[in-house]
Amino acid sequence: MKVGVVTFPGSLDDRDAQRAVRRAGAEAVSLWHGSHDLEGVDAIVLPGGFSYGDYLRCGAIAARSPIMTEVIAAANAGLPVLGICNGFQILVEAHLLPGGLIRNNHGDFVCRDQRLRVENASTAWTNGFTVGQEITIPLKNAEGGFIVDAETLKRIEGEGQVAFRYLDVNPNGSLDDIAGLTNAGGNVVGLMPHPEHAIEPGFGPDTPDAMRSGTDGITFFTSVLQSALARA
């Protein structure tokens, strides 16, 4: 099982995502934004960071890079794609997920261990969770406010496309406390929090048990292994 992680100019968390893939038991394949070759991977991660310095709009230029032509085609054919933070912004700009992400309503960068509720546990990246499960995943962004028109909001809420919701506080003014989405097929998932930063005891978010002991993020990566096995 091979999971590709795309590096764009300005990606920050591509190495962390590759490490998460390896810890989940898969082979991590480094993919390059300027290439058209997906190298036969079974799933793709678009990592966090500040691709192209957030110029134009967050994720806008990366969404139009050569590799994204292939990622969009593969996603539309059912290949699992996970967009984390800037990767979520890229998925939205590529129209693989609905809506848009704007500057946090309070205007500040936010960095915190964020509690989330899993709303959809039947996607390629969330099948290891249960619906209603509460997890803690680090969040770090300045432009994570999710917005969408009222009609689309009603549709995605009605069709179970809200994958994650913020608990305790809404850190950025997102509509309906939406932290992450999935597409109609359940193969594309995007979220602002960073699951790749919660995969190893000692390096994850704080939990009531111990400091930095949170590993809820690894389930994203083990889930996609399960879904790939099911597809095979």
Partner: peptide
């Protein structure tokens, strides 16, 4: 198509 995003 590119210079603006009609959602925002």
């Amino acid at each position: 198509d590119m210079l603006s995003n009609s959602v925002i």
